[in-house]
Write a protein that binds this DNA or RNA. Structure first.
Lengths: 205, 205, 205, 205
DNA sequence: CATGAATGAGGTTTCATTCAT
DNA sequence: AATGAATGAAACCTCATTCAT
């Protein structure tokens, strides 16, 4: 019996299989949501993409909504460290803003469908849930922004609206960035940073 | 009662009935979508809210998606004249931006339905379709912005990103505005305008 | 337009079809319950015996239990007039008792499975629900018995126990009668009447 | 105790554990059947009430039906010695009848489980299986009754019907006894004995 | 022997849509 | 044009049972 098996007695085959299955379901769900859209996707569609049996789905998730949330929250949990790193690496406001936007656009470009979009003619469907994770991300960003603002004597700016404005810019630019071929995360981050720092004056400079 | 109704009473009644039925379905759909969310709502849920029979639905719409689009596009069609009016009444860029934001926030405040949102604990679901109408609105806004920008010698600004940024700001601020009690369309329009014109410098001025 | 259509405008094809379908489901259910037993039977088993589609079942009944009740209550409703007739035709207690037992045993012998019994090796299952109809039958019988008892100055007999005893005799004898080949409703009614009137003394007389 | 239990102390423990597990399952089943009714209960419901794993169930029973039978037959096996005792303690027919009824009503009052009844509003469901045990009980009772009858020169009484009548009276009175608050096993036994010995004449005496 | 996750058949139920009235 | 019952595909989900650990 190895030391390993003492320190991690729970990591037997069964546990590994469980984690693998859960991940297999999440992966399949990510794909199917991206292809069919959230609404059109059924639980069957998801499990058909795995080599698991239908009943197995219900050992891991209660419903399609629950997988969606898990996926969504996973996404946010992967992004939050990036945001935190942007915060920690940045020593002035503009550097933070740029790093945060860049992190987000890169994340969107590389990470599987951050928003599950059915990109088929004639319509795509986008579903957004407001979960605790979503709100926590919003709040984390707000905190960072407020810190910088108050350190610069800009306490008068409405922090809620400012945070919302930044997120709106990020979301919509990400959407355009991914629809276009002539531009990537760096361009988008440059634009978004200029817009956020100086508005029209910033972007036209 | 008009002459028409005497000579051909059936026709007038019928036509009125037809329009009434269509409207009844749309009204019911608006309510139900708002209550249950788009996904959860079924055609049955919609017709149950009217005093029509299930089959009658199909005399007016082919599917739930079609009603949704009709509702959505109706919303956009109600908004576009407002945007055009903002354009026509404005003689400089900032005046246009302000008027456009104000029109949008007022529209959201009074006609909350276009973004069928289920605001139930603990999550809301927002579904957005990308329809020709949606794209036409985006393009109309882009045209207006480009006109102003080029008239000011700012042709170097990426019009697609700029439009996207403005719409992102509008959408997210609208969301916050409706969630908060301490602020309304005017405040939101002031903030959005300042953000769009001058970014952080604008909003902190 | 005939007089008929005025007096019975509701009796169109549709109404007739509805009644037929309901009956078809009940008939199928009666058969299947008798063959498979209540527990083993599924809603699918029932509709498979009809030429209706699966969904149609749910236009008529909410569940297997509901069909069962309908069937059960139907049975009781068919029996109650027989009991009432026994009461009305009888001028003394013993005549009533005999007529009632005979009606019951005949009813059991002819009417489709009054109790749904799976008579297969190695076990049968008998399910009994206690519904308002069941209780109403018990109460009706009790009323008749009490009337006769009090008219004979036998008010001291516990009417609840007496009624229960008679029903117990009826049920168990019916069961035996149907399991045996050497005896029929008349014999069973004779025996039950003798038992009820005079107990051991009665039956051995 | 054998040498075995010294050299292999595990065996004793294991055997005890085995018996305990079996009993745990039976106890859980008794509860769940009583609460949910036979049909509604699933094997999962039963094992969830124990601290055993689902697979363990199948080391002891093949199916829900088998547990049910075990429980049912257990009940009958607990009752049969009481019936035999009634027989052995009684020196005339009436004494036997009274002792048997009393034993049954007491048994029902204390050991309600044998007739797994779900007494929920508005209906209860009673399931009865006809097993070899059930038939053996019927036959044992019939034997005793026949013995007494023939010893009294009453061979002409139909023993099958007579036994059935007695059992019907017992079952139905037990049901009423348990539903009522004003009466107990002794009253019920008195009534049943009077009914069985003298019918209406008996109970009104 | 106990465990408990995986299995997948099959049950329940909903629902968009059709079509006879 | 309105009705609303019938349809049956297909969704959801449960469950008894197996079997690797």
């Amino acid at each position: 019996m190895s030391v390993e098996s003492i320190t991690a007695p729970e990591t037997g085959k069964r546990e590994r299989a469980k984690a693998q299955n859960r991940d297999a379901i999440l992966d399949a769900a990510r794909q199917v949501f991206a292809e069919l859209g959230y609404e059109t996707t059924s639980v069957r569609d998801i499990i058909r993409r795995t080599d698991l049996a239908s009943g197995t789905f219900y050992n891991y998730f209660k419903s399609k909504e629950e997988v969606y949330h898990a996926l969504h929250d996973d996404g946010i949990q992967r992004f939050r460290p990036l945001l935190r790193a942007a915060r920690e690496g940045a020593h002035d406001f503009e550097a933070f803003v740029r790093a945060a936007y860049l992190a987000y656009f890169r994340y969107c470009a590389t990470d599987g469908a951050p928003r599950f979009v059915r990109m088929q003619d004639p319509a795509w469907t986008q579903v957004r849930f407001d979960t605790p994770e979503t709100r926590a991300l919003f709040d984390e960003l707000k905190t960072y922004l407020v810190d910088f603002l108050s350190s610069q004597g800009l306490g008068g700016v409405d922090p809620d609206y400012f945070t919302a404005g930044c997120m709106g810019v990020a979301e919509r630019l990400a959407e355009r960035m991914m629809a276009r071929n002539d531009t990537g995360p760096e361009d988008a981050a440059d634009f978004a940073t200029a817009y956020t720092m100086g508005g029209l004056k910033g972007v036209s400079a």
